[in-house]
Design a protein around this nucleic acid. Structure first.
Lengths: 342, 342
DNA sequence: GAGCTTCGTCGAATCATTTCGAAAGGCACC
DNA sequence: GGTGCCTTTCGAAATGATTCGACGAAGCTC
């Protein structure tokens, strides 16, 4: 079993409190004894017992990350969130406890009441998420990734509405007048996942503003799903020349299938995606895309939470603006209709 | 701040120890007082302070999961491991602390010496992983996912060699005599990631045994990477009729690209993959595949660790055998050569 | 009804740490 | 040489739980 502070004290010939002060620096300790104590600490590989410490300091150095992990779906982005959170937490000297209870309420309440964590980050908050009132009532700071209906919870989000709009603006700017929107799977919309709805709403709002026609379809991330979604879009508007894709698991398939249907990209069809940059550049032609700043959002959330834990005031709301990276999948509208070969 | 056991005791008019016994059941408590205590616990939402408890019981109910999270690469499977670990841990009433230090040694030592966790699960163990001797020297149980060079660490693994062999056997059984192996990215091989090597070795061993020709290429999971890898394989053996794919991020692209090159699947080319079932069935034609039992491995690892924590003996080594699911991407060898159109 | 066991509860000790108050020692100053 | 101050260190209290030993009150036997 690991050494205790008493072991260190005995070995260095001092009292336990002296060791504690060496560690914390809360009181001056003479050079000589400090060196002896430090030597003992190193020799015994001593680390203060986290539990014992937490009971006095009311602090654990651990934060909870609550996110429903739905694998098979939405992997790429979720993984980025998790990885970035962990990486950033380490910068702040925090460890991360993962909570994946589906509703999440019970687990969050539990870890907070047991004083296992100093704060909580909650992902994928839905429109009327029950976790929101819970977090507000808790005795520990919390940060939400998403936009809750609450004006007391610190949160960070991506401007999905503007992202949807920006895709349309980009395509309309290139002269396109017939746009399609290929979104996530139907369930995602049924769960009233707010980012899915907001992005699509942005798409339609911008279409209306620019007086271009817009059609949409949800899309399962399977070859059949993509095929069905493309069929639906082309049936609704056979003159489609621009496509917005917000379904990262299907992006590569969408391009491949449209090409197989005889649409050259970007000559016959322009595609703009909303997805991580790594994905956009892993496909040929490289895809013009609104990059989803998953890493940045997660890092920011951790920074905010660390700030709250240190009792520094934090901005209530931070919305990251979208930015588009022009690549090779979107170009000017074709001069003449050359489609409908398949 | 959360209620303490003293608050509960006062409200119920009993001593703190009585409350503790109600909670633990370690001593009989009369029906009447038990009810009063339980009422107080519920009213105050009392949960025992994790730190205070850990200092006496030398137990935390938390396990560490150490895994280098490399996103962009290998997502699907990693995510399954993480998700399955979390899900299974919950069944055992354990919480999970994520460690993603790249070498992992320092973090593991730290959380163990601070008594933050009851045990450790380590993923992606390499041939001569420095974490192995560390884990052996630790005062807490550990389980490895992978095959360490050690005969004292409990570990679970998938029989990658047999998986590589099984793919060949399946194709050879269908009459194929010219096989290709499309593996992970070059870096994965350079890192001497043991499963990548073992799978490929199994492929070649089985080729030799069945007297069929085998060629291989690593493959980056990008459209260009896939294209280059397929070029390389077809250059080396233009008569290829069977392809083994162990690169889940590229699987869909491989099929699409081969079809675009004029190979009908499975009429001209049979494909067998090593990947999760969800992926194999999300593609049309559904892919014949050795399913990678990521969930099962992770669950098993958690079970083993929970067993060790409870001081029950555990089998030292568990290797899950591969099993192939026959779907629509592999069939008999074409009667005549009809390839090389592209 | 005295002595015994059994049941239910309590007080005190224990765990590993932090931190407050104070003690011990050295030095300067008058 | 006594007083006061500063530096450095120690002892003890406090934190929130668990658990051991003990104690009082019933219930039983003879």
């Amino acid at each position: 079993m690991p050494a205790t502070i008493a072991d260190v004290a005995k070995r260095a010939g001092v009292s336990a409190s002296t060791v504690s002060y060496v560690l914390s620096g809360n009181r001056p300790i003479s050079e000589a004894t400090r060196r002896r104590v430090e030597e003992s600490i190193a020799a015994l590989q001593f680390r203060p017992h986290a539990g014992a410490r937490s009971i006095r300091t009311r602090t654990t150095g651990v934060i909870a990350m609550a996110t429903p992990l739905i694998y098979g779906l939405h992997n790429q982005v979720q993984m980025q969130f998790v990885a970035a959170t962990l990486a950033r937490a380490r910068v702040h000297g925090l460890r991360v406890l993962m909570l994946t209870d589906d509703d999440g309420q019970a687990e969050i309440r539990d870890v907070v009441n047991r004083a296992m964590v100093d704060g909580v980050i909650v992902m994928e908050v839905r429109q009327h998420d029950l976790r929101v009132p819970l977090l507000e009532s808790l005795s520990r700071p919390a940060v939400v990734i998403g936009t809750p209906v609450s004006d007391s919870l610190v949160h960070v989000d991506f401007d999905f509405t503007a992202a949807g709009e920006g895709c349309v603006d980009h395509l309309a700017g290139l002269g396109h007048r017939h746009l399609g929107y290929l979104g996530q799977s139907p369930e995602t919309f049924e769960l009233e996942t707010s980012y899915a709805l907001r992005t699509r709403d942005g798409f339609f709002a911008a279409c209306a503003r620019a007086s271009v026609s817009g059609v949409w379809s949800p899309c399962e991330p399977t070859t059949e799903g993509v095929s069905a979604a493309l069929d639906a879009l082309l049936r609704e508007d056979p003159d489609l020349t621009g496509l917005v894709v917000y379904q990262e698991s299907a992006l590569a398939m969408v391009l491949e299938q449209m090409q197989r249907r005889g649409y050259a990209i970007p000559q016959d069809l322009s595609v703009v995606a909303i997805c991580p940059d790594e994905l956009a550049t892993s496909i040929v032609p490289h895809v013009t895309a609104m990059s989803l700043p998953a890493e940045e959002l997660a890092s920011l959330a951790v920074d905010r939470l660390a700030g709250l834990i240190a009792e520094r005031d934090q901005p209530l709301r931070t919305i990251l603006p979208p930015s588009i990276a022009s690549r090779d999948s979107a170009g000017p509208v074709p001069p003449r209709r050359r489609r409908r070969r398949a």
